[in-house]
Nucleic acid binder design. Structure first.
Length: 966
RNA sequence: GGGGGAGUGGCGGAACUGGCAGACGCGCAUGACUUAGGAUCAUGUCUCUCACGAGGUGAGGGUUCGAGUCCCUCCUUCCCCA
């Protein structure tokens, strides 16, 4: 082995990458004679540099795509950029760079970095979402949706910064303030564009056609939040209909008086006497409830502060208070408002409504725990059976009337301490008293079922299904996004830009000031003409970037196509995506949007040509009901845990916890260092020259390093400064500010791409991720160095047949393990199996019992098993042995059970389920034979001591076991 | 606030349907080769015990011939969304 040149990935990797490019090894072309495999990994946002997380997401997916290709599939594995979005605008505002300049420069850098992975990306299919050739079709899809009643204009709350005159994204708002300027942000209603997301809500609840992780399916189901219940119409009494004496300021009587008997048939009778005649002066307010069985317990109503009726129904007496509350609510975010543990706030409007089931007159309040964007923005409050309503009622002294009572309990509205949202028997509910209530939801609950029928019969209410899911708000008041191709004519009607005028292009000459919407300020963009040539205004909102990423997998099919978003010929062959990999953070947003988009395209005829082509080739168009068949989520690579330097500081002690140090020393341990003259401990935090030291018992000390102090760090030669001291790092997400970022470029320069790829696959569970460990990579370095030498080792002409058979067995067992592991996204065990094989090969070379022919047969298989994981070294060694280019077009080694089979196996002997020992037996031993061997073994004989076993259990299979119960 | 995971040696992690817990690797220890070693090679490495043996997968309980795996209660953590 002496004359072998050392393994040098820095030389061989770029060479092979170039060779693969030149040979167009990864160009994927439609070939109906071969089965296809569309492997897709979520495309990156061009933020600047490629992160180790990108490598972790992409290289295992690449390995699997390569493996599929060797299994005989025609594989498509494309890459592109999700290039619109906020960071580019922030860069523009902060550094005066145009978003396009910033984005394209980043993409150039990232393309180079992506190529260094040695992945099988087909770059001829690259798509870039901010390219006009791409967003032309994003706009075209908007038109398609608009023309099919899937897009509409509506009102929604936005984060509005009065200072910047602009709308902010949720992530730009921290504690109700703009994160950049610290100026307050208010909630403002604006007219915006929506897609009818709920149109496909029910279909999106059906996962029967797709193999997606259970957690994702659960999250999507909860996100859609389907519930069954009823719409019920209450009627508000307008101020004019109320007589002066009914206008009691403040809340209604608390119910703590004489009429509060919970068993009373007409609980609100005291309030019930003065409501006006039906019809006149009544404003209908429809509420949605999942619990129509509790209608008799509705003792007040609550409207969202933004509800349009608030101004109309508020009495003059209450007006000032109500307006102040509405104003205050505008300054709160939904997150704050929906926090359940928060103290409830609210204001009485002075108005009353009639509960349609019992004609009770109940007060109408406004409170910020009711959201205008949710349901109808109005609720009936049933304090006895809803936690939030209960808290509200108690805070404001509102009446609590129980209408459901569990067996063996007697509720009293005045003394209940918490709401009872569960089962029982209906009480105080007129005709329904005595009806049993279960924990079932919707019609399955007999009480709900009966009440809904009753409401419908009387025309008071109607069965209804509601979704937590809201329509998809796609408007963004931003520059760097796909324009919405809409024109507003002078008379206010909406026109769409004609197809031959698409795309509506973003103007290049914009000024990014961070103030206002750049597009709205751009005169030549805004001012246009309508279809009649009359002056008109353009829509200045752009589309949510989730719109771009909802169809990028289609653009890869034919990125150059300019007559359609994608070519039907390509789509009919490649779709749907077979394997999709990406992070869990997209579980409910991107992955639901893309499913919606796919169903919308199906129903608006966009796939019609594709369907026709599929049928022509005998494929069923229903295969395209879902965009991605199999989904797997990778975990996240976290920063490396690092201990801080051990430090001994001496100087002037200021107080018992603070020192001004003129001498700081890093020591290997604290032996003999401890004295009262010095401070010592692990450096857990450093802010400039202020150090925090922690002793093993957990006490902390502050050390301020004075100017001109000596700093000694023995591991770093030369004079040291305080900046070179390493402080402790916990396992956390990587970020520049924490200083725990792992740079893949540096790793590739040091170890080579194959090592980095294999290490990422080996060191973590793909689905879980975990903290980076810079030491562990040595194991992979050794593995590849070993393989480099083993493959080129010299072997004897003839070998020992038994040893050769043993090696063959190990090789074939490895085929099975690696194959199974790659199928199952268990990349770590695939590498482990290959390392195990390395151990066997190494032993074989050392012992010299394997002949050249047998050894070459083994290597021929081993290199192909390595090829998906470490493509460069596998190709290089393959070539060194004189085998033809390219290893990546070779078939995957075929598993042969006979060759993998063991002849003799250890029979596991268990007594009462615990292993006691092993007996060598033939692998194909019969049940009776195994039992006899076990009963004959020393352990069983000793345990039984002449007695009969109670039971003898044989567990067959490759590893036979016998359990003797005594 | 809502939702989803995860707890196995000093560390990363194995254990496919309940069937030998700790594969593979890092680290560590001892030895070898070396002027030297952060290179390489060999051996060892869950805990207790000289040993025979016994115990052991966050805690407690249950089902089973047999539980890391299934069920119940609790604890600790991480992630995502709003």
């Amino acid at each position: 082995m002496n004359d072998i040149a050392p393994y040098n990935p820095q030389t061989i990797e770029p060479q092979w990458q170039q060779r693969w490019d030149e040979a167009e090894l990864y160009r994927s072309k439609v070939d109906w004679d071969k089965p296809k495999h569309y492997a897709l990994t979520m495309l990156p946002y061009p933020s600047g540099d490629l992160h180790i997380g990108h490598w972790f997401a992409m290289t295992p997916s690449d390995a699997r795509a390569r493996y599929k290709r060797m299994r005989g599939y025609n594989v498509l594995f494309p890459m592109g950029f999700d290039a619109f979005g906020l960071p580019a605008e922030n860069a523009a505002v902060q550094r005066g760079i145009h978003p396009a300049t910033w984005t394209y420069a980043n993409m150039d850098r990232m393309r180079r970095q992506l190529r260094s992975m040695g992945a099988m990306f087909d770059w001829s299919r690259e798509m870039v979402s901010c390219d006009p050739a791409y967003y032309k079709w994003t706009e075209w899809f908007f038109k398609t949706f608009y023309n099919n009643d899937l897009a509409y204009r509506g009102k929604a709350l936005v984060n509005w910064s009065p200072t910047l005159q602009t709308v902010l994204a949720n992530e730009q708002v921290i504690d109700g303030k703009d994160e950049r300027t610290g100026q307050p942000v208010i909630q403002k209603m604006m007219t915006q564009w929506f897609f009818r997301y709920t149109r496909y809500a029910d279909e999106m609840l059906d996962f029967s056609d797709i193999d997606w992780p259970e957690p994702v399916r659960i999250m999507q189901t909860n996100w859609i939040g389907r519930s069954e219940g009823a719409h019920v119409t209450f009627h508000a009494l307008t101020p004019e209909t109320l007589t002066p004496e009914t206008l009691t300021p403040g809340p209604s009587p608390s119910g703590r008086g004489g009429d509060s008997s919970a068993a009373s048939e007409t609980p609100n009778s005291a309030l019930d006497t003065q409501h006006p005649a039906p019809g006149e002066g009544r404003i209908p307010i429809t509420v949605y409830t999942t619990r129509p069985d509790t209608l008799w317990g509705a003792t007040f109503m609550v409207l969202a502060p933004e509800h349009p009726l608030v101004a109309k129904i508020t009495t003059d007496v209450q007006r000032a208070e109500v307006e102040a509350y509405v104003e205050a609510a505008a300054h709160k975010t939904e997150i704050e408002r929906s926090a359940e543990d928060r103290e409830k706030t609210g204001v009485f409007t002075g108005a009353y409504a009639i509960n349609p089931v019992n004609d009770a007159r109940i007060p109408i309040w406004i409170a910020d725990y009711v959201m205008i964007s949710y349901g109808s923005g109005a609720i009936m409050a049933v304090p006895a059976h809803d936690g939030r309503d209960f808290a509200f009622a108690r805070k404001f002294g509102l009446k609590v009337v129980p209408v459901i009572q569990p067996e063996g309990e007697t509720f009293d509205g005045d003394t209940m301490t918490e709401a009872w949202p569960y089962e029982g028997v209906m009480i105080n509910s007129g005709p329904f008293n005595g009806t049993p209530v279960t924990r079932e939801k919707g019609r399955k609950n007999p009480a709900i079922n009966a009440v809904i029928d009753w409401l419908e019969a009387r025309g008071i209410g109607k069965e209804a299904v509601n979704y937590r899911l809201r329509d998809w708000l796609i408007s963004r008041q931003r520059y760097w996004g796909s324009p919405i191709p809409v024109i507003y004519t002078q008379d206010g009607t909406i026109e769409l830009a004609p197809d031959d005028k698409l795309p509506v292009e973003l103007p290049q000459d914009v000024e990014m000031t961070g103030y206002g919407n750049p597009l709205a300020q751009h005169e030549t963009f805004v001012h246009t003409v309508d279809s009649q040539g009359r002056p008109a205004r353009r829509e200045t909102d752009t589309m949510d970037t989730f719109m771009c990423s909802s169809w990028y997998h289609l653009r890869y099919l034919s990125p150059g196509c300019d007559v359609a978003p994608f070519s039907a010929d390509e789509a009919a062959y490649w779709l749907p995506v077979d394997t999709y990999t990406g992070g869990t953070e997209h579980a409910t947003m991107h992955l639901l949007y893309t499913r919606w988009f796919n169903k919308a395209l199906r129903d608006t005829g966009v796939f019609d040509d594709t369907f026709a082509e599929m049928k022509r080739h005998g494929r069923d168009p229903r295969e395209l009901n879902e965009p991605m068949l199999q989904l797997r989520n990778q975990g996240q690579i976290l920063g490396e845990q690092r201990p801080g330097d051990l430090i001994v500081a001496s100087g002037r002690i200021e107080s018992n916890r603070k020192m001004f140090a003129d001498h700081v020393r890093v020591v290997p341990s604290f032996d003999g260092q401890i004295s009262t003259e010095v401070y010592w401990g692990e450096l857990i935090k450093r802010t400039e020259n202020l150090l925090t030291l922690e002793t093993p018992d957990g006490s902390q000390y502050t050390v301020e390093v004075v100017d001109g102090a000596t700093v000694e760090i023995p591991s770093i030669p030369g004079p040291n400064t305080v900046n070179q001291l390493k402080h402790h790092l916990d396992v956390e997400r990587m970020s520049k500010s924490r200083g725990n970022v792992v740079n893949p470029d540096e790793l590739v320069a040091e170890y080579g791409a194959d090592t980095v790829r294999a290490y990422l696959m080996f060191a973590f569970d793909f689905m879980k991720g975990g903290p980076w460990d810079s030491q562990g990579i040595q194991g992979v370095v050794r593995w590849l160095n070993d393989m480099w030498e083993i493959v080129q080792a010299s072997t004897p002409e003839a070998g020992d047949p038994a040893a050769e058979r043993a090696l063959e067995r190990r090789v074939y067992q490895a085929i099975e393990r690696v194959t199974y592991s790659l199928e199952a996204f268990s990349f770590n065990t695939a590498v482990a199996a290959l390392m195990g094989l390395r151990n066997d090969l190494k032993t074989a070379v050392r012992e010299g019992k394997i002949g050249t022919v047998a050894f070459r047969d083994a290597i021929h298989i081993v290199l192909r098993l390595m090829a998906p994981i470490t493509p460069h070294i596998a190709e290089e060694l393959w070539a060194k042995l004189g085998w033809p280019f390219s290893i990546h077009t070779q078939p995957w080694p075929e598993y042969d059970a006979a060759k993998a089979a063991e002849e003799v196996v250890p029979l596991v002997v268990m007594v009462n389920g615990r292993v006691r020992g092993h007996v060598e037996v033939a692998a194909d031993i019969s049940e009776d034979g195994a039992k006899a061997a076990a009963l004959d073994s020393e352990w069983v004989v000793r345990q039984l001591d002449g007695a009969q076993p109670k039971r003898v259990i044989f567990i067959g299979g490759r590893e036979p076991k016998v359990n003797v119960v005594v």
